[in-house]
């Protein structure tokens, strides 16, 4: 079981899970993934010191009114690294978390031993418009996000209590603050991806319907210098949930060869 920590990052309180020994690995979750310590993280914690914070307004982290733009979250995570005393980390982000991770990498690649983006959103891709997730009910979201809908059970809410519904609303609002319009991207980010100097692995579900491999994954692979692209044949948008062992092994293998985190 990971340890739960409450931190204050330049005055912003956050909740974080932490487990494992080894090089530092910071995991940035996607929408709905806050606080979900699942086999993917468990497996990574065998090799790395895994830090798994909840974004402000998600999971156990209270909403932060000062967050107005995705870059606010990126700066927040540079602050998190500072607060943890981690000079260089492996940075792994999934979906929305991948977007934040990419923003961080464009700002401060020197803080990253490596960068892993799992089906990230965040850039404008020619020929693709991200489906409007805010307009979907839960069944529609599950079919859109997952290739194997059974994997969605891991993210299912524990109940339909007012507390749970209020949390979901708070998470939706925290996401909407930075991702409603433009929906799921920062118009400035794509041009900046060329700045990323950290070794980068792109993990992509072959059946992603939020940000499909073609054209989204292919665009990212073109824009980030030297990025490797690894495709997961049985996954949709969330290979770390749909093929957790394979995804964790791919991450471990890539990051182990690129040391210097701590």
């Amino acid at each position: 079981m990971p340890a739960a920590r409450e931190l204050s990052i330049r005055g912003t309180p956050i909740h974080m899970l932490q487990e494992g020994r080894g090089p530092a690995l910071l995991f940035l979750h996607g929408a709905g993934g806050a606080g979900r310590w699942l086999p993917f993280q468990e497996r990574l914690a065998k090799t790395f010191s895994v830090y798994f914070p909840s974004h402000p307004g998600h999971g156990g982290s209270p909403a932060a009114e000062w967050i107005e733009h995705i870059s606010d979250l990126a700066f927040h995570y540079l602050d998190v690294l500072d607060a943890l005393g981690v000079e260089r980390a492996h940075l792994v982000g999934a979906s929305f978390g991948g977007w934040i991770a990419a923003e961080v990498a464009t700002m401060a690649s020197h803080r990253l031993a490596s960068l892993v983006l799992i089906d990230p959103v965040g850039i404008r891709v020619d020929g693709w418009i991200y489906p409007f997730l805010f307009g979907m009910d839960i069944p529609e979201i599950v079919t859109t996000v997952f290739h194997n809908p059974m994997a969605a059970l891991a993210l299912a809410p524990p109940d339909q209590s007012i507390e749970t519904l209020a949390l979901q609303y708070r998470q939706g609002a925290a996401l909407a603050r930075v991702a409603w319009n433009p929906h799921l991207y920062d118009p400035l980010l794509r041009r900046r991806l060329g700045r990323i100097a950290a070794p980068t692995l792109l993990c992509w579900g072959a059946h992603d319907k939020v940000a499909p491999l073609a054209p989204c994954g292919e665009t990212w692979a073109r824009e980030i210098p030297g990025a490797r692209l690894r495709v997961f044949a049985d996954s949709g948008h969330v290979p770390h949930l749909e093929e957790p062992d394979a995804a964790a092994d791919a991450v471990s293998e890539f990051c182990r060869l690129r040391g210097g985190a701590g």
Binding site: F134, M136, L165, A166, Y169, R170, G172, A173, R177, W180
Partner: peptide
């Protein structure tokens, strides 16, 4: 109305939402 259209995130304060849910 398709249910998500009733409740765009952040349109209501959390206090208003809780009153509504109660």
């Amino acid at each position: 109305m398709h249910p998500p259209f009733w409740r765009p995130p952040g349109y209501m304060t959390e206090a208003s939402l809780r009153r509504l849910l109660a």
